[in-house]
């Protein structure tokens, strides 16, 4: 089996799909992944694919024109997943997609489509949760910085919601796990940025700045709970502990 490995960004993934497809080894004999395997297997051959503009664009056009733009946006969304088999599943869904057309994402009877559905839903749920649980911290006057630690590469998907919500504020959201950030200058469009180690260490200390409204929020958070209905299990169910890392009310 030949394993195609690429970096976790959308352009590289598209190039990887192109190379895998054109290798002509037979779909059953190849596998795609974005993660370096922890243990290499003796029997498999490993190929590292890097970003190639031409290849990426031809896959993009093929999906958009031969399947549909909706399917393209669905697979791009699912590609934010950190699951090991996410890219491989997308590849398998595309094979079915070129055969059956735009309704492929509804054919959950196929196990690849059903797996795709799971991955897509997990990413969607995580995006939704972090729209809820992002906590901005004011550093200096009117400069808001938030840190999150998500499982998937979802920070880019948060931008649309928050730039609609706070178009006239300066803010940024930093993904501490994958060292990515989105930056929104006042009254402008937001942009995505990979952080260098230097930038990242400088940004790490933003949460230590004193923000008076954090204390007021904690006061509110504690007094709004009804002690007769105390139910930590329900609270943990709805707001899991691993998502609370940067939620100031739990500090």
């Amino acid at each position: 089996m030949r394993v195609f490995i690429c970096e976790h960004n959308w352009e590289a993934m598209l190039s990887c799909i192109y190379d895998a497809w054109s290798s002509k080894l037979g779909h059953a004999n190849i596998r795609l992944t974005t993660q370096e395997p922890e243990q290499y297997s003796l029997l498999d051959e490993y190929v590292t694919v890097s970003f190639d503009r031409g290849k990426a664009e031809s896959v993009m056009d093929a999906v958009n024109l031969k399947i549909s733009p909706q399917v393209y946006s669905e697979i791009a969304y699912a590609a934010m997943s950190s699951e090991e088999d996410a890219l491989d599943t997308i590849y398998r869904v595309l094979i079915l997609g070129f055969a059956y057309g735009p309704n492929v994402v509804k054919m959950v009877g196929y196990k690849d489509v059903s797996r795709f559905f799971d991955i897509r839903r997990a990413v969607g749920n995580e995006v939704h949760h972090f729209i809820e649980f992002v906590r901005f911290h004011e550093i200096r006057r009117s400069l808001y910085v938030a840190h999150i630690e998500p499982k998937n590469h979802i920070v880019g998907a948060l931008g649309g919601h928050f730039s609609d919500r706070m178009p006239s504020e300066n803010w940024m959201i930093i993904d501490d796990v994958h060292k990515e950030a989105i930056v929104h200058p006042k009254d402008e469009d937001f942009y995505f940025k990979k952080l260098s180690d230097d930038e990242f260490t400088r940004l790490l200390c933003t949460e230590e700045e004193n923000d008076e409204y954090t204390d007021l929020w904690k006061v509110f958070f504690d007094s709004i709970a009804i002690s007769e209905r105390f139910n930590p299990k329900l609270q943990r169910n709805l707001f899991p502990i691993w998502k609370r890392k940067h939620a100031v009310e739990f500090k």
Partner: peptide, 27 residues
């Protein structure tokens, strides 16, 4: 409701919970 430049905020039809208090009810 969509946001507007110069204003603060928008509103989402599904509703958004931002936290969950000790009684498990959403805030």
């Amino acid at each position: 409701r969509r946001g507007q430049k110069g204003m603060l905020g928008n509103s989402c039809a599904a509703g958004i919970c931002h936290s969950f208090a000790a009684d498990g009810r959403c805030i």
